[in-house]
Simulated assay, not measured.
Amino acid sequence: MRALPRASACCAIWKSSPRGSRRTTRGCLIGDFSLETAQASELLRQRLAEIFADWLKPFAACIAAAQQAGTIPARFAPDDLAEFLLASWQGAILA
């Protein structure tokens, strides 16, 4: 990836997801499931946390590459920015 297409790469990651591609019409299955069941089962809560962590990886990798290219300021850790973006996205979907 070149420096400027980094944002496009992150958008492509989002568009390839079920919610981003508009294949779903009501919320996010994992987000909804997390809200409704995570309190009931520690095992389930751990698995949902693992899924969320897996979702962060492509965003963090894209952000890190953009920071190395100088496209995105490196003030924040890529993992922190990825978590913020994904949590914000989930919040918007579940709102």
Rank of each mutant, 00 (worst) to 15 (best):
L4G: 09
P5M: 05
R6M: 11
R6S: 15
R6F: 06
A7C: 13
A7H: 08
A9R: 09
C10A: 15
C10P: 05
C10W: 08
S16A: 14
S17Y: 00
R19E: 12
R19F: 07
G20F: 03
G20C: 05
S21K: 05
S21D: 03
S21Q: 08
S21P: 01
R22W: 04
R23M: 15
T24G: 11
T24Y: 11
T24S: 10
T25C: 12
T25D: 07
T25W: 05
G27V: 04
G27S: 05
I30M: 08
F33Y: 04
S34Y: 07
L35E: 13
L35F: 08
E36K: 14
E36M: 11
T37M: 15
A38D: 01
A40H: 15
E42W: 05
L43M: 13
L43Y: 06
L43I: 12
L43R: 14
L44E: 06
R45G: 07
R45N: 07
R47T: 07
L48V: 14
L48A: 07
A49I: 06
A49F: 08
E50F: 14
I51H: 10
F52L: 12
D54H: 14
D54L: 15
W55C: 14
W55F: 12
W55R: 13
P58Y: 02
P58H: 00
P58N: 01
F59P: 03
F59D: 03
A60C: 02
A60L: 02
A61W: 01
A61P: 04
A61C: 08
C62R: 01
I63W: 02
A65D: 08
A66C: 01
A66S: 02
A66Y: 00
Q68S: 09
A69K: 00
A69W: 01
A69M: 02
G70H: 02
T71R: 10
P73V: 04
P73R: 07
A74Y: 03
R75T: 13
R75I: 06
P78S: 04
D80R: 11
D80M: 13
E83M: 10
E83C: 13
F84T: 14
A87S: 12
S88W: 08
S88Q: 09
S88A: 12
W89C: 09
W89G: 04
Q90H: 10
G91V: 00
A92H: 09
I93V: 15
I93T: 09
I93G: 04
